[in-house]
Design a binder for these strands. Structure first.
Lengths: 245, 245
DNA sequence: GCCTTTTATAGTCAAGATGACTCTTAAGGA
DNA sequence: TCCTTAAGAGTCATCTTGACTATAAAAGGC
């Protein structure tokens, strides 16, 4: 790192200050559709518009800490639950005019969560709600771009990581896991082939002991699995035809 | 995005300001070894220590623009060359105490470049130099972490993207391309298998017209190739045994 | 020139992984 | 009881890999 234009007698206030925020693209699969957690802004700019949850990074916290704090505030989830969630830095958005008030750079995070209860619009948000991904209206700031980037990233990561289990509850069936892939990728997968791939990948999932089985309504009851130790998928589970970018 | 603690009568100066910098992990393959572009700091903090090139983001530029500007300044490359380089946002580092002077968040970028001429230590750097990756001393700030993250990311991206060509000059032989993989991954690859994989992946490389062949010293002259249109590798070119993380 | 070394390029072959299917089992609902 | 739905077992051909062998074309030493 080099030094600022006039580094001698360094004075932080000599520079036009930047504000740093975090924005969260919190995704889940609910009823076979990809959903996003959105909040309705209570004040200007973009008052009344929907936006990704997020907020300012406090002076003594890291962006990751801020992200978890904001997520807990906006969803009303207990800290313990939020602490265990899969949170991943997506990208940082730095266009000079992305916020009309001042120079704000935003560190965006992606969170993959199981189907959670409806959020209570806490914090500064007028309202918080899960919206189906393809019914999301135009969002405040550059949040459309962030959300699109998050979706692309998640789709790609499903191919070569075990991340899909993050969308599932602690115990899940292979059918539920397959639904995650089908929903995020938007393509149907062959059931037996999917099953074979998941079960032969060491550490992807591990069976839950005992005879417990879950009947998901109709059909033969399915065995339950837990997420395994592995994080990467080798070889990967590639999407059918779509050559991903 | 929610609003700051006391958003009414918003005043940017009311918050302890953050500074925003960019840091660049510029990697190249030279003589079969991975090299990194480092600069020696001219002043405190960490005066005399080696660090990644980078610098402050100016008030009216994006981080990406700042990264290219700093890269041009520190390496002395013409703007046109820098404009064509593969620059990719790596991650943003936000630990509160990563800079002893003040709160600085840094957006890190990774650049993959062909074997470039020795840099002239321009800008604020006392000296700029290519250092072999495994001879890099302890770096200033958290740059060791950034550099390690960059290496991990690049290693992984070689598997499922066509990024390796970014390490090569405009025209290159398959031997040179293979050397990139072997150097970054640190494992030898089977020559015929590598060749088959690269040539059967549509759009990875395209042959250079005519009879031009390059003799790289000894051995049979090799045909020349150019980078193709493709960006992704489907299916990927996985590292031999190392199950990547 | 001749021989050795080095690297490119052409094949071969078996094992592994994948895609497309079929068939059976075990529930729920009409 | 019969039909529908989804789980789970298994088959088979094709595609991709990893491991190897063989040949071609240069440079260097003698």
């Amino acid at each position: 790192m080099t030094t600022p234009p006039r580094p001698d007698g360094y004075d932080p206030r000599a520079f036009e200050p930047f504000a740093v925020t975090v924005d969260l693209a919190v995704l889940t699969v609910r009823a076979g559709r990809l959903h996003v957690l959105l909040v309705q802004r209570g004040q200007e700019p973009y008052a009344g518009a929907w936006a990704l949850p997020g907020g300012f990074v406090l002076p003594r916290e890291s962006a990751g800490t801020a992200a978890r704090r904001e997520l807990a505030e906006e969803t009303g989830l207990p800290e313990a639950t939020v602490a265990g969630l899969h949170l991943e830095q997506l990208r940082t958005y730095t266009e000079p005019d992305r916020d009309p008030r001042m120079r704000v750079v935003s560190v965006a995070y992606t969170a993959l969560v199981p189907d959670l209860p409806e959020p209570r619009g806490g914090g500064d948000a007028a309202e918080a709600r899960w919206l189906p991904y393809d019914e999301v209206p135009a969002l405040a700031f550059d949040h459309d771009v962030i959300l699109a980037d998050a979706r692309t990233r998640v789709g790609a990561k499903l191919e070569y990581t075990c991340l899909a289990t993050a969308f599932c509850p602690p115990e899940f069936t292979l059918g539920e896991l397959r639904e995650v892939y089908e929903t995020v990728w938007g393509v149907p997968l062959d059931r037996p082939n999917f099953r074979r791939k998941v079960l032969t990948t060491p550490g992807f999932v591990e069976p839950v002991e005992g005879p417990p089985r879950r009947t998901g309504g109709r059909g033969k009851p399915a065995a339950l699995y837990r997420a395994g130790e592995a994080t990467a998928l080798h070889p990967p589970l590639l999407r059918p035809e779509g050559r991903s970018a």
